[in-house]
Design a protein around this nucleic acid. Sequence first.
DNA 1: AGTCAAACTTAGGATCTCTGAG
DNA 2: CTCAGAGATCCTAAGTTTGACT
Length: 554
Amino acid sequence: LEPRTFLLWEEEKYEDGVKWKFLEHNGPYFPPEYEPLPDNVHFYYDGKKVKLSLAAEEVALFFAQMLDHEYTTKEVFRENFFKYWRKEMTHEERSLIKNLDKCDFGEIHAMHKSKVETRKNMTKDEKLKILDEYGYCLLDHHKERIGNFKIEPPGLFRGRGEHPKQGMLKKRIQPEDVIINCSKESRVPVPPVGHHWKEIRHDNTVTWLASWTENVQGSIKYIMLNANSKLKAEKDWEKYEVARKLKSCVDDIRKQYLLDLKSKEMSLRQRAVALYFIDKLALRAGNEKEEGETADTVGCCSLRVEHITLHEQLDGSECVVEFDFLGKDSIRYYNKVPIIKKVFKNLKLFLENKQPGDDLFDRLNTNMLNKHLSSLMPGLTAKVFRTYNASTTLQQQLKELTNKSNSVAEKLLSYNRANRAVAILCNHQRAPPKSFDQSMANLQAKIDARKEQLSLAKTELKQAKKEAKTKGSSDTKLQTYRCKEQLLKMEVQATDREENKQIALGTSKLNYLDPRISVAWCKNMEVQVDKIYNKSQRDKFAWAIDMTEVDFVF
DNA sequence: AGTCAAACTTAGGATCTCTGAG
DNA sequence: CTCAGAGATCCTAAGTTTGACT
């Protein structure tokens, strides 16, 4: 059986909630067991060689591996690590090793680096073998690629932002921790020798193949299918269909929340303002989080007093709200937005008698908000607004920015700019690439060189014309033309890269933009789809590439 | 109405691989 | 042919949503 490339429209539909009828797989891949340090590699404490027990040694290696990373200098990280490391130590070790600052992991670190180097050169074939054995499953008569078929290896937890649990030990997962999900009638995966599974389950109302509970946050981890699988692609299609449905009723919903802004009920007013933000700014819903368990980040419903500042007047606009908070992944959201008076007044009201640390929307949570939304339209939740806003913005920007008579390079710049507008709306940021300035300078140097070459070619062409009193050899002409083309391409590339310095386009492209908009645009502009989607993106969006007509409108 | 677990999507950075300029 | 760096892929953390239970 070949991996599926397309979906099931023409296939039978299952009863409600049933995700598959037959599921067979080989179970997850387990990372290799720990290999003790070679005899010539030592750990030193307070300048003295110390032979560690196996358990303590393994944890020491986790720390040594990360020594290049600035994580290992952070106080919280070091404290957590040291605490958990000591738990793995023997009595003797514990009474000796009392100060992380006196620990020298230098040799272990060096060994690890050289090991990585040799591993790089070796494992290509091995990787393919592993992929072949564990990377696929059989789901309803089709071979499907599994997304993450590897059990996560042990190591030190790296949270994002100021995570209170950074540095904690993430323990090794054994088969005894893993639940397998597959068909009763299937060839049930065989656990590694000498081991057994925690449980074998046959639940066809869920999509995961295996799961285990992770020890740092206590959350469940799943082995699931790749994005190009039927299960995922269909869900994706549904997501965009729901967002398109919102398009037809968003006007009514807006009318409704504008009315609610004047409600006598405080919770309705708060709901209305939150909805206004979610709609206008594409903020995330903002669930409550347990304090001390994760980094302090917020979304719309969990905004606190200190996250907004109200300005009656700012930069020539009236009623401006200034947002400054850390969102998902501790990415900063900073924005100054003029808002309507009614919302502004409500915000002032919500802030009355509150201190920094207090919730802005104290009578609202995501549950209430989503319940309300789903009563307005089936399937409507807060995140649908993000999808809707993103896709609508792309469509509108593409219309505004692209011109059929442009060159392909210019069209692609326009496409990226439209994509960028969405990424900015959704606040998808990235750290500027390490070598950004350097690579920008390199590109500029190339452009300059090419410019020089071009002017030289031009003079030559003139010269040739004069001498031969003809139109100049077609060869020189062609050369000049090519030169111009390349120059344009590079200049466009430079612009694109500069504008993209701190913006990540991938997330919106992959998760928020209805691929049919892009496919239709490609058809209209006579741009090949593979200019905007790479191989795996084309696989993921195969359904859209296959079904979309030129006249598709989101 | 609130709490919690489960299941799933979304996210940025790390790492690997490929490519095209020199 | 080599190798930097761009682009693709991997990794797994961090969100959202739902539904059971209290």
